[in-house]
Computed example of a mutant assay.
Amino acid sequence: MTLTVHDVSIRHYTEADIDSIVAMINGDPFHLKNEVTVQAFKHGLDEPGERIRDNTFVVEREHAIVGYFSLCFVEANTRINVYCYGTVDRSWRRRGIGTAIFAFIFDHLKAIAQQEARTIRFIHRADTRIAGETTLGTNFGMQEKNIMEVRCRRDIELSQAYNLPPGYKFRPPVLADANDWADVYNDAFDGHKQAESVIHEFKGTDFSPNLYILCNDKAGQAVGLLCATQSGTQARIASIAVRRDAQGLGIGKALLSEIINRLHGVGVRDIRLSVDSQKTAAKSLYSKFGFQEEYQRINYVTTFLP
Rank of each mutant, 00 (worst) to 15 (best):
I120H: 03
I120P: 04
F122P: 09
F122L: 09
I123R: 03
D127S: 02
D127W: 05
D127L: 03
T128Y: 11
T128L: 03
R129G: 14
I130N: 10
I130M: 15
A131Y: 00
E133Q: 14
T134R: 14
T135F: 13
N139T: 11
Q143A: 12
E144L: 00
K145H: 13
I147D: 02
V150A: 02
R151K: 10
C152R: 09
C152E: 08
C152P: 06
R154Q: 07
I156Y: 05
I156M: 04
L158G: 01
S159R: 01
Q160A: 01
Y162R: 00
N163F: 05
N163A: 12
L164S: 02
P166L: 08
P166H: 10
G167H: 06
Y168H: 12
Y168S: 04
K169V: 01
K169W: 07
F170I: 02
P173I: 03
A176T: 15
A176F: 07
A182R: 03
A182N: 13
V184S: 06
Y185L: 11
Y185P: 10
D187R: 04
D187L: 11
A188S: 08
F189D: 09
F189N: 06
D190R: 03
G191H: 07
H192S: 14
I199Y: 02
I199K: 13
H200C: 02
F202D: 13
K203H: 10
K203N: 15
K203F: 02
K203I: 07
G204P: 15
G204Q: 10
T205F: 10
P209W: 01
I213N: 06
I213H: 05
L214M: 09
C215V: 12
D217P: 14
K218R: 08
Q221E: 15
A222W: 00
A222Y: 00
G224R: 06
G224A: 04
C227Y: 12
C227S: 05
A228I: 01
T229C: 08
T229F: 13
T233N: 06
T233W: 04
Q234R: 01
A238K: 12
G248C: 09
G252Y: 08
K253C: 08
